[in-house]
Design a protein around this nucleic acid. Sequence first.
DNA 1: TATGAATGAGAATTCATTCAT
DNA 2: TATGAATGAATTCTCATTCAT
Lengths: 216, 216, 216, 216
Amino acid sequence: MTRETAPAPEERLRDADRSQHTILAAARDEFAEFGLGGARMDRIATRAGLNKRLIYYYFEDKEKLFEAVLEQAYRHIREAERALHLLDLKPADAVRRLVEFTWNYYLDHPEFLTLLNSANLHKARHLQGSQRVREMNSPLIAMLGEILERGRKEGSFRGGIDPVQLYVSIAGLAYFYLSNSFTLSSIFGRDLLSAKARSERLSHMCDVILGYVLRN
Amino acid sequence: MTRETAPAPEERLRDADRSQHTILAAARDEFAEFGLGGARMDRIATRAGLNKRLIYYYFEDKEKLFEAVLEQAYRHIREAERALHLLDLKPADAVRRLVEFTWNYYLDHPEFLTLLNSANLHKARHLQGSQRVREMNSPLIAMLGEILERGRKEGSFRGGIDPVQLYVSIAGLAYFYLSNSFTLSSIFGRDLLSAKARSERLSHMCDVILGYVLRN
Amino acid sequence: MTRETAPAPEERLRDADRSQHTILAAARDEFAEFGLGGARMDRIATRAGLNKRLIYYYFEDKEKLFEAVLEQAYRHIREAERALHLLDLKPADAVRRLVEFTWNYYLDHPEFLTLLNSANLHKARHLQGSQRVREMNSPLIAMLGEILERGRKEGSFRGGIDPVQLYVSIAGLAYFYLSNSFTLSSIFGRDLLSAKARSERLSHMCDVILGYVLRN
Amino acid sequence: MTRETAPAPEERLRDADRSQHTILAAARDEFAEFGLGGARMDRIATRAGLNKRLIYYYFEDKEKLFEAVLEQAYRHIREAERALHLLDLKPADAVRRLVEFTWNYYLDHPEFLTLLNSANLHKARHLQGSQRVREMNSPLIAMLGEILERGRKEGSFRGGIDPVQLYVSIAGLAYFYLSNSFTLSSIFGRDLLSAKARSERLSHMCDVILGYVLRN
DNA sequence: TATGAATGAGAATTCATTCAT
DNA sequence: TATGAATGAATTCTCATTCAT
């Protein structure tokens, strides 16, 4: 009710927070759609429904804004991965679950793929500062290591599997298919994103990964 | 002998041709390094050591130039693939050979990866026109299908493998690792491109793919 | 009183308005002098003493700017015509007044002539959007029709005169002489814009138009 | 038959002449359509089906080419006027004939109007050199003077008419209507170039001019 | 916190013109 | 006479960023 005359300090803060989140979401979409080079600060402002000047106020410049977007994207997927509770599952189920999760996450968050591409085009220089991102990662790999170890011990998994290699392979099988779906569709002359094609791909991925992980 | 005084018509043609090739190579490098949005026509001209106007003379505009670069990149890898003569090898050897080739080609031609990323960021619109690219592709898939069939017949390969899925998986295992090597290195805190890491990755990839393809 | 410290919102608005007007005036002069094709955005900015970017900020591009200039030019002459209050005069006086006005307006606003020429060179495509311009026109023709009718009723004017034809004729007699004064002067080897020549032309025009309008 | 091996000198000349004429015609169309500023040397070459370099070979530069086009345009209309043999007609018929001719010539040669507009936009500087154009003109005015004098003597024409003023008025009545037909049509919301509108305009023009020239 | 106005450094593209043969 | 290749100087337009309030 004091709104009209003079916002309380907490309200202002909440507004500020909301503005920052709005900008971040708008920027994520813009960067995802056009890449870092193709993104336009003007369009981000329009997407956010906020004044362009405000972006600079909160994020300094385009580069820093991209960094923030990237960090947020990593935080988001890491949180989702942690929520999987893979260690509650049997090893083979855990691996299958991870494959399925990866596939679905990439499908539901296509912006993640293009953001990573942009980050790599720029040699990951936007990650340099952020040790937070690095820290976010270790738990997952540790967890996957644990799963592999358990599987080996119970005799179902082959030994000597590097969890990083496996993680990268799982990601790669999904990533390449989805990130390059446009060129692949064009080249192979078939729609790779139809419901049927998608379920076939997931099934294929599970076969490949489990075919590798499982003993004989 | 008239060389010194008056170049034959073919000579002049060759100059035009050479200019076009020089531009194409320069453009490929620039697009690979900065993406479509980040590439600068000025820099391409400088890289080529030719007048910027000449780029427009031969390639009309930036988009068309990118199309030409992309088509050339596809032509190049397809030629290399064809030179593998996979059908001369035993099925398992052929698959292993393809994995190795893919890995090495991506390693030796990092520009190919970023070009594809750019093309996909733009939803492959630069491929729309080019049916040539589409035509270039079929032989490889047909060949891979033939290899899988032979392997199945001789009893060493499992059946029901879609050559397109397999091709995408082979590519994906290599692509993701290399295309995202910067973010991955940063995140995992280990250099993914050291000689040792590279040979481990190739070995892992062969294990994964052959683990999947080979019967039990 | 707060003037010195903080301009009211209307002030700021007025700044924007002033900038737009300054740009419009500069553009009008530039287009008038060089035509649409020969006009330079850089020069318009310099003439306006404003940043070139601002022109695009307010007017989008050269074409749209030309449209705005054209519409303003029409609005200006229509306002001047309306201010004549021709219906307060006797029919013959009203016609003479219109001839004089037309002549003087073209003399005082040579930019109007070249702007129209440019617009017609481009097949009036810059008017297509603007229904405002169309609406501005009708009052004048209606008024002239009324004058002709009055003259006919009182017996001094001949009947059957189309006001549009008459308007075009009055304009044409002045327009051609002034718009083409350079080639005509060059060809006839006499200065058509000397004070004497100008007064002779006006007198001739009145003779022609009234000779036509008046009953025998 | 020697054509194949070595063209005879006259043949070469004829080719050269033909090329020049082709270029001139192409340039006339281009300048007429886009004005001097909007005309493109490239398009002129394409229109002519000849190499761009050849235009420079024959006409030095764009300005000189425009001069040549302009001079040709004047030569053409002057020749047509001379072919009218106005002095063979009775004075009133001669004047009417001139009005009709002017109208029809402008209708059939719309390029003449835009060329003149371009020339005037550039303050007729392209005519400065050409005294030929000046000389071409005098006969017509002298002829018109003679006609007016004959009419006055036989009592049908009013006296004191300046042939230059009359010529300009006849031209102006037709010129403005046709040169500005696009804006006028747009503004008056009626097609000024329909067959009916055209015949009405000619009829109106004759009424105006003869209403002025004829005694009472 | 929020915003409309303004800007300088570039970026793609264009254009008349010239080179070399 | 004729031409394809090449160029430098513009020219329009864009973009991240800052000003002023």
